[in-house]
Amino acid sequence: MELAAFLPGRARSVTVVGSTPAPLVQFGPEIGSAMRKLFESKGVQFKLQAKLVSLIGENGRVTHAVLGDGSQLVAETILVGIGVVPATAFLKDSGIEMNPQGFVKVDATMKTNVDDVYAAGDIVTFPMAALELDNVNIQHWQMAHKHGNVAGAAIAGIAKPIDTVPFFWTMVFGKSIRYTGYGGGHDDVVIHGIVDDLQFVAYYLKKGKVIAVASMGRDPVCAVFAQIFIARKPVTKADIESNPNDDWTSWLSA
């Protein structure tokens, strides 16, 4: 989506093909729909709930992209985001514990189940005490950076269990979405503000407690919430409803 935001004005046309019903659907359908409107207002077209099945070309250059319904898009350049899988097959039969997807399981100091063997970065699942989660995998540079810090300390004989939460952002057309926490498995969303105006805070809850927050045009809510998570100060749905202005700074000193 960042590439799609960069290309208008640099390419004759830009079309995003995706399998989901809305772009950035991990933020929820309402936010995804608002983001689609933003992109379309800048000339980006969408083919959603669609699948790219093949490419057609001539003289070594692509000319068309073929979708699952048989339709074709004229194309001179194809950018494909297909995801990744952990390159850990070489660890098979090593005795190092991995889950069925090939991710290496580590403890809060990045230690594997094998003495003196540590792992860090995108290939690991690790406990996130601040959000009371076990065996999470978060493929983001911030987490890998912290993993290295924690693993290095442990190898040097200094136990410094990981104590951080994810915080990331994306910038498109001069608009920034901020996000903190880990919203996997949320069962409720409370939104303050007006999503279509790209001025909102979205609280993702699980069993009545906030586990992640996304915001747009409402700084510094996410930055403050990252500190709330680290401080282990639970925020409930009732707390959100009693704080319509989304001012959480005082929560840290409460």
Rank of each mutant, 00 (worst) to 15 (best):
I82R: 01
V235A: 00
R61W: 12
G28R: 09
S33V: 13
G174W: 08
K42N: 10
D197W: 05
A130R: 10
D115V: 11
A159M: 04
V25Q: 01
D196G: 01
D69T: 14
P100C: 04
K237T: 14
A226V: 00
P244Y: 08
W248A: 04
K233V: 10
D134V: 13
Q49R: 02
R232E: 09
L3N: 01
G152M: 07
A34Y: 13
L131F: 07
L52D: 04
P127S: 02
L3V: 03
T164N: 01
M98S: 05
L79E: 10
V195G: 09
A130G: 03
M1A: 07
I158N: 11
I96V: 11
S215K: 01
G60V: 02
V165W: 00
D115C: 15
W248S: 05
K160D: 13
M110K: 08
A154T: 09
Q45W: 05
D187Q: 10
N59D: 07
L198H: 10
A212E: 03
M171E: 15
L24P: 06
S215M: 04
V62S: 10
V190F: 11
V17K: 01
G183V: 00
K209S: 10
D196Q: 12
Q101C: 15
Q101K: 11
V224T: 09
T249A: 05
K42D: 00
K146D: 13
R61H: 14
V62H: 04
E30Y: 12
V44G: 00
Q49H: 13
V213F: 05
M1S: 05
M143F: 08
G57D: 09
K92C: 13
A89W: 07
G193D: 05
Q227L: 04
E30N: 09
S33C: 14
A254Y: 15
N135E: 13
M216Y: 04
G18T: 03
S242R: 09
G95R: 11
A212P: 04
G18L: 03
L133M: 13
S215A: 02
A254E: 11
N99P: 08
G60I: 03
M128P: 06
F168G: 01
T249G: 11
N149Y: 12
G81I: 06
M98Q: 13
F90L: 05
E132F: 11
L79K: 14
Q227D: 15
V136I: 04
A108W: 11
A5F: 14
A4Q: 05
L24R: 04
F46A: 00
F103C: 06
